[in-house]
Computed example of a mutant assay.
Amino acid sequence: MDDTRRASPLERLVEAAETRTDDEVSDSLGELLTASPEDRKRALRELRRLADDRPTAFESFLPAVTPFLTDDERAVRLLTAKALVAVAEADPDAVAPAVSALAERLADEDEFYYVRARSAEALGYVALDHPDAVASPAVLADLRVGLSFDEPEVKQKLAKALECVALGDPGRLRHRVSALAEHLDDGDELVRYHLCTAIAGVGCDSPDSLAAVRGALSARLVDENAFVRGRAAEALGLLAGERGDRRDHGESVAVPDSALGAESDEAAAFVAERVGFLRASMEGDTAAAASTVEDVGTLAGVRRTTADAVTEITSPDAEGVCPHCGIDLPEGAPPMCPSCGAPY
């Protein structure tokens, strides 16, 4: 007798993942929809491991995964969204068919906020390669409006998704720059960084569209975070380069010396390169601006440097301190900040 026929759907899922029989993965997932909550959670944890090992495999059985986004168990929905984030980061093509399902989770105000956050993050990664699939007016509205009302963890992912849209197709946000700039003074440095990066991305394609937010960007030149200051300087440099030397028209930007201060060598280099780009652009020296550093002021450069910048921003400055908001963390507590709610 064939032993696999007596195996549970969960056991067959694990075996199929290990033996790379993706058709069996799909069949097992279909049966697991009616399994116990604990088995469904274990199945999604297995899928999460598979997402790390073989993200491209998801393309073949994605239709069997997306129903778990509406599972009755919150933990199952969150595990599903996390798995799709991992896949989308490595292989956006594989998750593109799930855009509608992810957008529904994002739009559901009653959904657990971490599920909404992860759904937004997955949508953002897809938008880098497939902006047309993600950047519908409805999805962009959900991303933008949520910046005013959502939990800190959700706002970070919303801002990140908007950044991804801008880096995938800057024109999609050209007429929404002012709305993004309204949140450049957000209390969360990651939100400020992602939005400055989104605006800089738009500026790479349409520098003049940043004119209306010059003041908001200039205010970020004294931001407490060097990477935010750097991106703001880069965006302002793009605007200055487009308009030429406008000092006689009252449109120059004062760059305080404090803008160059930084807490690490990486941050210092990041902000110095972009302040140099801004100053050269304001002087009307386009050759100097272009040669300040490779890729500064280009969409490719913004895309290339943003992940490393986020890594630097989220690296804890001190042991026992939340990397997101800086509050002292209690010993022995769950890995979630009691102040901002972000995991660490």
Rank of each mutant, 00 (worst) to 15 (best):
A300S: 11
C337F: 10
D142E: 15
P335G: 10
A88C: 06
D150C: 14
T56C: 04
A280D: 13
E73C: 09
R40Q: 12
F277H: 03
V177S: 07
R6V: 09
T305Y: 12
E151L: 00
P67E: 04
A88W: 05
D23F: 13
D188Y: 03
E331Y: 06
L239G: 04
D208K: 08
E46I: 10
V275Y: 05
L143C: 08
L13I: 01
C340Y: 02
D188L: 07
R42S: 11
R105V: 15
D52T: 12
A216R: 10
L238K: 01
H324N: 07
L278S: 08
G237A: 05
Y193H: 12
V228S: 00
F277V: 00
E263I: 02
R49E: 15
P316W: 02
D248E: 12
R243H: 11
T80I: 03
H249M: 07
A212N: 08
R77F: 01
G261M: 09
H324R: 09
G187M: 02
F270A: 14
A212L: 04
A101T: 08
L78C: 01
E89K: 14
D245S: 10
L329I: 06
A51S: 13
V126P: 05
G276H: 01
E182I: 07
A103Y: 11
L217S: 04
S100K: 12
P316T: 15
D257M: 14
A240T: 12
P343Y: 07
L184H: 06
P330D: 12
E283F: 06
T197D: 03
A333R: 08
A235K: 03
P343M: 04
A333P: 13
H175K: 07
V202S: 03
K157V: 00
V255E: 05
E18H: 13
D132F: 04
A81S: 14
S218G: 08
G244M: 08
L10K: 03
R54T: 01
L29A: 11
R279D: 08
G203C: 13
A235H: 05
A216Q: 15
E294F: 06
R214A: 13
P334V: 06
V228W: 01
E73G: 06
E11M: 05
L221N: 03
S206K: 02
T197W: 05
F270I: 07
S119Q: 12
A138Q: 15
P55C: 07
S28W: 02
L29T: 00
E31G: 01
A141S: 15
S119W: 11
S60R: 15
D169A: 15
K155W: 04
P170N: 08
A318S: 14
T19G: 12
A133V: 14
A16K: 02
E59H: 12
R118S: 12
A288F: 04
F277A: 01
V154A: 15
G146H: 13
S8A: 14
G237S: 03
S281K: 05
V76Y: 00
V222P: 00
E109P: 05
A342F: 06
E18N: 14
A81D: 06
S315N: 04
L79A: 09
A141L: 10
Y113R: 10
A198L: 05
A272H: 02
P9I: 00
P131E: 08
T34Q: 09
V126M: 13
A211P: 02
A219P: 02
L32I: 00
L44S: 11
L158C: 09
E89A: 12
T311H: 03
R176K: 06
T197F: 01
A226S: 15
